[in-house]
Design a protein around this nucleic acid. Structure first.
Lengths: 180, 180
DNA sequence: CTGATCATGTAAGGGGTTACATGATTTT
DNA sequence: AAAATCATGTAACCCCTTACATGATCAG
């Protein structure tokens, strides 16, 4: 249980847009730096074969028979599976949303799903506020303890980051894309 | 090769301060939330035994003979090994310093090592500036591409975070602890 | 005397990295 | 003709997580 499997969703997400080969997927990861995450071929190819067996993706018939090239497309099954995952943090009444979970989903939200996007941002903002309160408490415990100066700087860094995030998501909630 | 092994350095770093048991180490991780990182017993105990075999730590004689309690202290060997790692990003003319590497080292820098701390912050600031330039380029490529709105938000978030970091480290370089 | 905390481990399995292996196609 | 890029994989190894196993000590 608890199979996080980021790669699985990254691949499915990319294939919701257009059919691709394993090689293409790797290129996309490297070029887009996706959300600052990548995977080697040795992870991508086995994962593709696993998804194929699970009937979440399938081979297209576009490939020249003489090449080894294998172009994959997502199945209806895969579409549903991916969408279910994408919407999970909202339908689930989970009160927490880690940065990784959040970023991974955000990556696949374009101009569609405007409503869902807003809810996702709201949820993340809530999580951040709780974390900020916690960090402020920790910070108050280390100030004036010069031997923990390094740790104090780390806490300040995390605080600054999370506060910047709250600001950004607040702005994004107020000014949705539709206004552009 | 390329054994990153965060845990190894966390343990050695804690033991430079005071002798501890595996249980104490776990407590410290959980309480201090270290630098937002923790490890389970199933990782800590085997690692302690490995460090013991490598002669980087040793058992103290403080423990009651009748208990299973094992209090460890760092050896001279371990001290050297740890210090070498701590100073690596400077002595090494590596031009990059990842956030994880940076934070891990920062955690063990108190009011001592003021000079080294400044160099470390400087180095990190340089890395950040390069990354910011890269992100600004990526951002310019996705704006006005509504289908990549999610990715745009991610890039903006990363940019905001890195900029906040630069600001913070600049301030820390200018106002060292000695002024407190 | 019962439950919380102290205390140390092993086992199984997932996920990720690095290195290795192979060969076709395209560019220079 | 050589080098770069396209293209798909396997093998070994490390790190980390979850679950399991065991028992002592201390507080209520």
């Amino acid at each position: 249980m608890a199979r996080s499997n980021t790669l699985q969703y990254m691949i499915l997400g990319l294939l919701t847009r257009t059919p691709m080969t394993g090689y293409d997927i790797k290129q996309t990861f490297d070029k887009e730096k996706a959300e600052f995450w990548t995977a080697p071929f040795s992870q991508i190819y086995p994962e593709l074969n696993r998804l194929l067996k699970s009937d979440l993706i399938e081979l297209t018939n576009d490939d020249d028979v003489n090449t080894r090239k294998k172009t994959y497309q997502i199945t209806d099954n895969g579409q549903n599976y991916f969408k279910e995952w994408l919407l999970l943090p909202i339908s689930d009444s989970a009160t927490e949303l880690s940065n990784d979970d959040f970023v991974l989903r955000l990556h696949f939200l374009g101009n569609t799903h405007g409503d869902f996007l807003r809810k996702l941002l709201e949820l993340r903002r809530q999580t951040l506020k709780v974390e900020i309160a916690q960090l402020e408490l920790e910070l108050s415990e280390v100030t004036n303890h010069p031997e923990q100066y390094g740790r104090e700087l780390i806490i300040q860094k995390e605080l600054a980051n999370k506060k910047a995030d709250v600001k950004l998501w607040t702005k994004a909630i107020k000014n949705p894309l539709t206004e552009i």
